[in-house]
């Protein structure tokens, strides 16, 4: 049972989409290894899901679990903002790691 449930919404396999997917995979492996589930949803194929989640911009990353729900938009190239946006800070030892990096 993964602790983190993440969904990434994209529109078509564009360069920007691919970049977002790569950035997210890398980040997850670095920060959440073994404790996450990731689903990638292409809105060109499943537009109704975009309707349900009221997605306006793509790529949009939604953290469904643990609550509260969080959204980050963009190609996720700014790792720090993704960590901040997803509330990844308080959990695990990633906090100290990140402090070292800075």
């Amino acid at each position: 049972m993964p602790e983190f449930v993440l969904r990434l919404y994209i529109t078509g396999r564009t360069l920007r989409s691919e970049r977002a997917i790569a950035n997210l995979r890398r980040l997850c492996e670095e920060e959440l290894a073994g404790q996450y589930g990731l689903e990638i949803i292409d809105l060109l194929e499943r537009p109704q899901l975009g309707e349900d989640e009221k997605i306006l911009a793509t790529p949009t990353l939604i953290k469904n679990l643990p609550s509260p729900l969080r959204r980050v938009i963009g190609d996720l190239s700014d790792t720090e903002k993704v960590i901040l946006g997803l509330d990844l800070l308080p959990c695990a030892e990633s906090q100290s790691q990140q402090g070292d990096e800075e």
Partner: peptide, 23 residues
């Protein structure tokens, strides 16, 4: 949504909006 101000990280577009309208 009431607390809807997403964090922006890098490039994005309104492709989702266009896809939804088209749908």
């Amino acid at each position: 949504e009431p607390d809807d101000r997403p964090i922006e990280s890098g490039d994005y577009d309104l492709g989702a909006l266009i896809a939804r309208i088209e749908h």
